[in-house]
Amino acid sequence: MTNKLCYLLLAITVIIGGCSASIEGEQYEKMTPRFDLYAFFGTNVKGWGIVQDRSGNVIQRFTVDIKGSVQQNELVLDETFSYQLGNGPTKRTWKIERTAEGKFIGRANDISGPADGTSYGNAFHFTYRMDLPVGDDTYDVAFDDWFFAMGDDTIMNRSYIKKFGLVMAEVTIFMQHVD
């Protein structure tokens, strides 16, 4: 292989690697405040969010009202979305169960298969696949979803929407308990 070809392959690898997000949850294990998924979402929550495309342009702006409840070992989240920019799903219901190993398994009406969740101190990581409608098309994408406790009643959620391992869009949502 020539030096030019080696440099080209190295450059492509660096560019592709730089297009994806990867967070290691273990770094949040000892951070506070601790985030308890069931305690935070077991009540009414309001969220304000945006979706940005690969260029950083805001393509959706929305609010979400979440009515949460814990029923036995299952967290149920009834979500209602309102869009000020763009459009998307208006309703989603999550059912999330804590396993004996301390992991979480979630299901929702528009999620492909189960979502896998892990708690890390003041962070929570959720991964899942979704058939995401965009215009007249639907794309099979992966969500890499991170929740971070900002206080007892406030969290920040960052989601990376990936296709072929590359980040195609990012979602940022701030959520707070409401009475």
Rank of each mutant, 00 (worst) to 15 (best):
G106W: 05
A123S: 12
G88F: 04
G135R: 11
G86W: 04
S119E: 07
V134D: 07
R34C: 00
G135T: 10
E79Y: 05
Y160G: 06
L75M: 06
T127S: 11
F62M: 08
I59A: 03
L8R: 12
T127L: 06
Y128F: 13
R61W: 02
A142I: 06
D131G: 09
E97P: 00
V51L: 14
R61Q: 15
Y83C: 03
T2Y: 01
M175S: 15
I15K: 02
T93L: 01
D145Q: 07
V70H: 01
A11I: 12
V70C: 06
Y128K: 06
K91N: 11
G56D: 06
I59G: 05
S55E: 08
D140Q: 13
L77K: 03
A21Q: 14
D140V: 01
Y120C: 01
N44I: 01
D145R: 07
A100K: 12
A115L: 02
S159F: 00
F104L: 04
G25Q: 11
V141T: 06
N87K: 12
A149P: 10
A100C: 00
S112G: 00
M168L: 13
D152E: 15
G47S: 10
K4N: 12
D110E: 11
I173K: 12
R158C: 04
C19E: 08
R158V: 10
T43W: 00
A169R: 09
I105Y: 04
K30Q: 15
Y38E: 07
P89R: 12
D153W: 01
T99A: 01
K95M: 11
Y28F: 15
V51H: 00
M130Q: 14
R54L: 13
N3E: 12
G49S: 05
G117K: 04
A169P: 09
E97K: 14
L75E: 05
I111K: 11
D78E: 15
T99Q: 05
